[in-house]
Every structure is written in structure tokens, then in C-alpha cells.
């Protein structure tokens, strides 16, 4: 890891991560990236959109583009009535809602437990993973939002 990246990780680790589960994987988003956490409701499907785009919904007067992380990661889809939660992130003037299964705690792991993305991760995960932390309760993947929302990769992730 170069110095700049490790400073970034140190800062993120100190500020903390909002964690959530998707499938059986714990993942985290830098606390400062997350705008709100909400239950996705009233999603308007968008015909012809990339499959990972669950649709649009309104959150306090703003339009949120909802991304289904299960689809984005090629995991089995959520059944009818199974709970879901969305993490709202702001990107430029747009808000995206990343739909996961269950929200977790805010974690402040020690920067020393950070590791770059290992090569044995499935390709879908490695595409959207900026590295991971080895914690007592398992591994937490750090999501790389830019890569996750890359329009071209979204279209490919059918």
C-alpha cells in the first residue's frame, strides 16, 4: 500500500464505517459517505435499465436511484417479503440507495487490520471492493462506490 492510500484508510478507519450485510457478507461504507439509512419503499421500476438498478424512489423530495447489491454482486435474489435496507449516498448532484439485507453497527476497525482486495475473492466482489478488514467476527469488505456505480460495469453486471 502506498503512503497516500494508507493515510486514506487510517482516516476512514478512525471515522468509522457504516456496515451492512448482503448475502452472508459484511461490508462497510465510509461513515462520511453515507447520507442516510432507510427502508426502500415505493420503488418505481425503470424499464430497460441495467438489472442492478432496482428503480427510483423519492426520499424527502429527492429522487433516489436504488441499486440492488444482490443483483450487482450476482447473488441469489431476495424473496418476497424478505427485509431490505438502503444506504443513501450522494454522488455529485445525485443520490443513490444501495439496497442490502440488514444494517449493522458503525465499526471503527484498526487501520492495521486492513488488507488490499485478495485475489481469491469472486470477480463480482473484487470489482466493487476497495479492500477488507479482518475483524474478530469475520471479514468486512469496504465498498468502492465509484466502481460499484460505474455505468458500464452496471450494464455488464446483468
Amino acid at each position: 500500500m502506498n503512503q497516500q492510500a494508507s493515510d486514506g484508510i487510517r482516516r476512514q478507519a478512525a471515522e468509522g464505517y457504516v456496515t451492512a450485510m448482503v448475502g452472508d457478507q459484511l461490508f462497510g461504507l465510509a461513515l462520511t459517505q453515507v447520507r442516510d439509512v432507510f427502508i426502500p419503499k415505493g420503488i418505481c421500476r425503470v424499464p430497460l435499465a441495467p438489472p442492478s438498478v432496482a428503480g427510483l424512489l423519492s426520499l424527502r423530495g429527492r429522487v433516489v436511484t436504488a441499486i440492488d447489491l444482490r443483483r450487482r454482486l450476482g447473488l441469489p435474489l431476495r424473496g418476497e417479503g424478505e427485509p431490505s435496507v438502503a444506504l443513501g449516498i450522494e454522488r455529485g448532484a445525485e443520490i443513490y440507495g444501495l439496497i442490502a439485507d440488514r444494517i449493522g453497527n458503525v465499526l471503527r476497525p484498526s487501520a492495521e487490520s486492513f488488507e488490499p482486495t485478495p485475489i481469491n475473492l469472486t470477480s463480482r466482489w473484487s470489482e466493487v471492493c476497495a479492500g477488507l478488514y479482518r475483524l474478530d467476527q469475520g471479514v468486512m469488505a469496504v465498498l468502492d462506490v465509484e466502481s460499484l456505480l460505474d455505468a458500464e460495469k452496471l450494464r455488464e453486471a446483468a
Binding site: 425503470v46 424499464p47 441495467p50 438498478v53 429522487v63 455529485g92 445525485e94 443513490y96 456505480l149 455505468a151
Partner: peptide
């Protein structure tokens, strides 16, 4: 949204 910009129908 930028991820939907390709959809010219809308």
C-alpha cells in the same frame, strides 16, 4: 441519474 443516461426513451 448518470447510470440511466443511456435510456433515451425517457
Amino acid at each position: 441519474a448518470s447510470v440511466l443516461r443511456q435510456l433515451s426513451v425517457f
